[in-house]
Design a protein around this nucleic acid. Sequence first.
DNA 1: ATAAGTTTGTGTCTTTTGTTACCGTAATTA
DNA 2: TAATTACGGTAACAAAAGACACAAACTTAT
Lengths: 223, 223
Amino acid sequence: MQKDYLYRGILCKMKEELLKTFGTQFEELLIDEITSVGRLIEVPAGETIMDIGNYVRAMPLLLSGAIKVLREDDEGDELLLYYLEQGDTCSVTMACCMGQTKSEIRAITETEAKIVMVPVPKMEEWMAKYKGWRNYVFESYHDRLNELLHTVDSIAFKNLDQRLVAYLKKKAQLTNDDCIQNTHQEIAYDLHTSRVVVSRLLKKLEKMKKLVLHRSHIQLIDL
Amino acid sequence: MQKDYLYRGILCKMKEELLKTFGTQFEELLIDEITSVGRLIEVPAGETIMDIGNYVRAMPLLLSGAIKVLREDDEGDELLLYYLEQGDTCSVTMACCMGQTKSEIRAITETEAKIVMVPVPKMEEWMAKYKGWRNYVFESYHDRLNELLHTVDSIAFKNLDQRLVAYLKKKAQLTNDDCIQNTHQEIAYDLHTSRVVVSRLLKKLEKMKKLVLHRSHIQLIDL
DNA sequence: ATAAGTTTGTGTCTTTTGTTACCGTAATTA
DNA sequence: TAATTACGGTAACAAAAGACACAAACTTAT
């Protein structure tokens, strides 16, 4: 009895969350289906929710928080590709589900995140059944492709100092905070460079009065 | 009378070509539909079939030949992203069709190419109707996403000499010819670097007996 | 309080890549 | 045939980024 009550409470909360994020683009019936087969999880920051080489059995719908998606080189060094935000899903993961192939990327929660996991067979079923779902899946692919294109732009066409500035701006926007809570080493990992180089460039930006450096955090002034 | 006969001949040829490339993955009914609404075009090498900023009204199915897909920076300099080959379609273009947005990329025929152009409204219709089409569209997105990931790898993790070797190998595979018919300047454009740098690296490879340089073409020996 | 670890600043050196300039030769055109 | 253009080789130099070494400042654990 008590348990059943609790369970219904969780479902209610989940439907509410789904409506908040997807209410305008998903059919009500679809939302109900997601509520009944999806699993709502709340993940703290810094958790790896998908890793390179893993097989994928479920597709994530991000209700809140941010997830960073990255790629790894032969030596195990990383490169940030892009962030997922509210309403996004991981297309690469999706593609892996469908194709039964291993994941090519790693996904780590950047902040605390609420995620609904949808089992793979359902996503195929809904594709034929709900236009809203079809459009969503396509738009996701579209968005991710475009984001990857801009990632390519930034690493192929921009210098490290420009990339660093863009990185800091994006981070501030994501966390809604002008104070970046990262060490130089962490930033270096994301940009796939060395700590020394990041420190050097940050110092240059500080001299240009664009930010103020502190231990383990950076106060943005005017980028 | 005469015209009608000719027309049927073209349709026959088109269906035959479609069967050759897509016979195993598309339903027969779908092939018929494509034959009746699609437009078969034969494009010589070097033609721009899609450009940055263009709106897209049709989706291309590549029956034969190769298409290079590239990105441009602020100064108008280019970077090769990947090649499309037989059976491929341009997902970025597709995404633009659906979303009614402008193209983010340029597509140029690398060799002579046979392409079937499918009007946008049909691709949506078929998505609900044919499982074969749905799978194809998804696989295309998947493949393109993965190719872009490997493009990112190569520009972020590899040195120019490694990228050059990979470029030459790919080109030889595409044209099925160990002799690369390009000037150093053309290669420099694709790799987004300068002619001098390409000449330098090619000379190094020649000294290592990996290839032989000639005017306007390069004979690969052992890469 | 001391020791150990973390974080950042800085100097020097090397490698990689980009830039400019100039020359010789091959190909094309007048 | 002469002039022009395209292509490639090379040297010299500059800029960007990476590698290494070490010190100073700050934090945490003992």
